[in-house]
Design a binder for these strands. Structure first.
Length: 476
DNA sequence: TTACATGATTCTCG
DNA sequence: CGAGAATCATGTAA
């Protein structure tokens, strides 16, 4: 896409055209001389008074002319100038000039007539459309980002303010700038070159049979040549955009693990909404914001998580416990903070036992885990009726007297689970006798009961599996 | 190097 | 259109 190439190509083209002209001139000269169609030629001596049937005489004439031409280089510049001037001033010059032009015109047209029509190149149109669509051509701003958004949408990702997106836009802008700069250069070069050639031809038209029509045609040739180079520029630009786009999409496809923090946030949400792990759009947006990922990535994550959790619940038990405990601790701390705040705000308020709850959560890790799980169990018994209620349910549970009691009663996980199962069956209508190993079976308890029905194989959740508790958690 | 984990994509279905 | 399921492709730990 360099300017020099462009000029070189144009020059080649012009040179070829000139050669063409020279050939035509030769041929015209030959025809004219042979057929005596030109009378009293400029450099030609007048015919020898015959009717043109004297072959030997004609040959002699041609010989003379050739001789003159061959020896012209031996003449001095002044002499040649004088001769040129003489020719220019010859009285027959205009007539000869017009005849030569006419002949040349006819010959030229017959040669180039076929290519004279210039139908719009479909390839060029395609390139133009593509550049327009990609935002390289057309209006200054907006096109690029629109294309980027389209690309993002096509790849299934949101056109959020991701790094890739801004990179893409920056690169596209760069391409756009280069394209326009080059285009301008080409246009300028084309104009300059055309002007130059026109001047040259006009200048030469004083000595050579060059009609305005021919100049016009020459201009057309130059423009065509330049536009073909312009097409190369457009093609290269399109290629660059395509490469950029494919790299952009590749980059998006390329997997990069989320940060540990992001995974934790997502897991916390997932396990605290295990009964209905379908975050709303708002929740997704919130999570996306917290995790510095896109909404669609949140959706992907939850999609994958649900499937993988469902496929192998056992494998996720530990994780579930961990996050349940973590969430509970957080909630407890939040509750404690709230209590402290309320106390600070109203120092006269009598202690309401909240503090004790807080202390309860200050157990050693193992016990606190079980206790908390039990708390969750108990708390969740009533939570199924209110799915999607968010993380706050845990704070509520921690403040719930029943759950606290349940935790105290449970000396070990089994007893806790038994107690909790009992509580659950009582409070939420669960039937403990539903199946040997079936801890619970949500019958239309949540709007999305299908999740648990479909995803909680009885064989996996056994009464001895305290972690199963997280299943009942969630939602307020 | 390998096995597993995990984010992304694609297809199907309701 | 969203969810589930299968699959791909890459990251990561052993």
């Amino acid at each position: 896409m360099s300017f020099s190439i462009c000029v070189a190509q144009c020059t080649d083209s012009l040179a070829a055209t000139m050669d063409d002209q020279a050939r035509i001139m030769q041929s015209i000269g030959g025809v004219s001389l042979a057929g005596h169609s030109v009378q009293g030629g400029m450099a030609l001596p007048p015919p020898h008074g015959h009717d043109g049937t004297d072959g030997d005489g004609r040959k002699q004439d041609i010989g003379d002319i050739l001789h003159q031409i061959m020896t012209i280089t031996d003449q001095s510049l002044d002499e040649a100038q004088a001769k040129k001037h003489g020719l220019n001033c010859h009285r027959m010059k205009p007539a000869l000039f017009s005849v030569l032009c006419e002949i040349k015109e006819k010959t030229g047209l017959s040669i180039r007539g076929a290519q004279e029509e210039d139908p719009p190149d479909p390839q060029l149109m395609r390139l133009d459309n593509m550049l327009l669509a990609e935002g390289v051509a057309g209006p200054e701003k907006g096109g690029g980002s629109a294309a980027a958004a389209a690309a993002a949408a096509a790849s299934g990702g949101a056109a959020d303010n991701s790094i890739e997106h801004s990179d893409y836009r920056a690169k596209l802008t760069q391409i756009r700038q280069i394209y326009h700069t080059e285009l301008e250069k080409y246009e300028q070069a084309c104009n300059e070159f055309t002007t130059h050639v026109m001047n040259l031809l006009r200048e030469q038209s004083r000595t050579r049979p060059i009609s305005p029509k021919e100049i016009e045609r020459m201009v057309g040739i130059i423009h065509r040549k330049f536009s073909s180079i312009q097409m190369q520029l457009k093609q290269s630009t399109c290629e660059a955009v395509m490469i950029l786009r494919s790299r952009f999409l590749d980059a998006r496809r390329k997997r990069r693990n989320f940060s540990k923090q992001a995974t934790e946030i997502l897991n916390e949400y997932f396990y605290s909404h295990l009964s209905n792990p379908y975050p709303s759009e708002e929740a997704k947006e919130e999570l996306a914001k917290k995790c510095s990922i896109t909404v669609s990535q949140v959706s992907n994550w939850f999609g994958n998580k649900r499937i993988r959790y469902k496929k192998n619940i056992g494998k996720f038990q530990e994780e579930a416990n961990l996050y349940a405990a973590k969430t509970a601790v957080n909630a407890a701390h939040a509750a404690a903070a709230a209590v402290q705040n309320s106390q600070a705000n109203s120092p006269t308020t009598p202690n309401s036992g909240f503090q004790m709850k807080d202390e309860e959560f200050q157990l050693d890790s193992a016990e606190s885990k079980n206790t908390l799980l039990s708390n969750m169990f108990t708390g969740s018994s009533g939570s199924f009726n209110l799915p999607n209620s968010g993380d706050m349910f845990l704070s509520m549970q921690s403040l719930n007297g029943d759950s606290y009691q349940g935790a105290q009663v449970g000396a070990n996980v089994q007893s806790q689970v038994d107690t909790l199962r009992h509580v659950i069956s009582q409070t939420a209508g669960y039937n403990d006798a539903l199946g040997g190993n079936t801890m619970y079976s949500p019958h239309g308890l949540s709007a999305n009961g299908g999740w648990q029905d479909a995803t909680t194989p009885s064989s996996v959740i056994s009464p001895t599996e305290g972690p199963g508790s997280v299943h009942s958690d969630t939602s307020n």
